[in-house]
Amino acid sequence: MSLDKATVSRIARLARIRVADEDLERLGNELSNILGWVEQLNEVNTDDVPPLTSVVEMQIPQRRDAVTDGAYRDKVLGNAPESEEGFFVVPKVVE
């Protein structure tokens, strides 16, 4: 599978990564190589193999329904470039 420049550009945009035009072709080739490597797995017949979701034989750990966290607003806002009256302040998002 080979990725064209438009597809690479779209993937970059979905991931919010800025990629210069001159890098698109090189990245396209690299991504195509990775996809080609993964595609080799299609050669293996997995019809009767259930998906492996974890290499450890365990159940999902669950938590009791109790308030044990939060109530440290200053810490949560600590790394925010801007905050006001307890809110994060971000550039206007237009609907």
Partner: peptide
């Protein structure tokens, strides 16, 4: 529920902004 789906922060309605936020 008392707490959120994947964290121990409170779900109560009407709190001060960002007062019920865990690092998760």
């Amino acid at each position: 529920s008392e707490a959120k789906l994947f964290s121990g922060a409170s779900t109560a309605f009407g709190a001060e902004p960002n007062a019920q936020v865990s690092f998760v």
